[in-house]
């Protein structure tokens, strides 16, 4: 009998153990390891024990590194522009398409395709379309009698090209989230507005958008976090070039480790990127907390009114 009780008490741990072990060894440990590695002068051929401890020198080097600062700004610019465009387009489309139409389910299915396909393949498709001679864009332009555009070989155009590809891939994400939020809005508020004679624009600006705001802000932050992680599409499209015009941080980390074999420096960069994302995530949690607190206050106030 006592054996059975013991077994029962151990059961939860037995269920949890495999997941716990894997997460500790394959996820937490590497992240801790990365923090440590960022203080080392370390090349891939060395064991970590042989690498020299150099304190903060990796970080100081980064601070003084023109190329790193450039790619830092490219990252910020890319994330900012991409997320703004996607939010505007995604929410706009959701507002336009929020109607009872047949085939909406199929439409949504078609829209998530770009997100499901491997980023590598997305990069491949766009690289083909941007191709200076065989690409569909330049061919169409030439057929219409215009000059071809140097999509991937000019630094400004390359940045635009990368932004377009990302907008193509991720606008549906915002669209689907915004549509879900919109369809869960309380009908009563909208009907009340209609009775009061609000027009379409007033309904959108005064009712729909404010009520969707909590979801939209979480969506924005999720997308922003993901925008800092984009790597494969840009790797295939431009490999960061021409120059450093499209080299976002994640790509720079990859290249520093892969091509320049500076693991310590790559770790230091990873650390900085991680801290930036951490700040965003904490911001998101804080926002959620504040929202929940406000909601529960409102609910409490409403209950008081009822009594």
């Amino acid at each position: 009998m006592s054996v059975a009780i013991k077994a029962n008490r151990l059961t939860p741990y037995m269920f949890l153990a495999p997941a716990g072990i894997i997460l500790i060894f394959a996820l937490l440990y590497p992240i801790g390891y990365m923090v440590y590695a960022s203080f080392l002068d370390w090349s891939p051929s060395q064991r970590i024990g042989q690498a020299e401890f150099i304190g903060l020198r990796n970080y100081i080097n980064l601070w003084g590194d023109e190329a790193f600062r450039e790619s830092f700004w490219v990252t910020i610019r890319f994330a900012g522009i991409v997320v703004t465009l996607e939010m505007v387009l995604g929410v706009g489309l959701a507002l336009l398409l929020d109607r009872n139409i047949r085939g909406m389910a199929l439409l949504r299915t078609v829209f998530i395709l770009p997100m499901m396909i491997a980023p590598i393949v997305v990069g491949l498709m766009w690289r083909y379309m941007y191709h200076p001679t065989v690409g569909i864009f330049n061919r169409t332009l030439k057929n219409l009698g215009f000059e071809g555009i140097p999509w991937l070989s000019d630094s400004t155009w390359a940045f635009i090209a990368v932004v377009i590809a990302d907008v193509w891939q991720w606008t549906p994400f915002i669209f689907i989230l915004a549509l879900a939020a919109m369809q869960s809005l309380p009908r009563s508020a909208l009907e009340a507005a209609e009775i009061d004679g609000a027009n379409e624009w007033q309904k959108i600006l005064m009712i729909k958008l404010p009520l969707m705001m909590p979801v939209l802000i979480v969506t924005l932050l999720l997308r922003l976090i993901d925008a800092f992680k984009v790597l494969e599409v840009i790797l295939v499209l431009t490999n960061g070039g021409p120059g450093l015009s499209t080299e976002i941080l994640a790509l720079r980390i990859f290249r520093t480790a892969q091509e320049f074999q500076e693991l310590g420096e790559a770790a230091a960069m990873s650390n900085l990127l991680l801290m930036m994302l951490m700040a965003l995530t904490i911001g998101m949690f804080a926002y959620n907390r504040v929202q929940e607190a406000r909601l529960s206050r409102q609910r409490a106030a409403a209950e008081k009114d009822d009594n």
Binding site: I31, L231, S270, L273, L280
Partner: peptide
């Protein structure tokens, strides 16, 4: 939040 690029090294 953790990008795969961060896990790379």
């Amino acid at each position: 939040m953790v990008p795969p690029a961060v896990l790379l090294v």
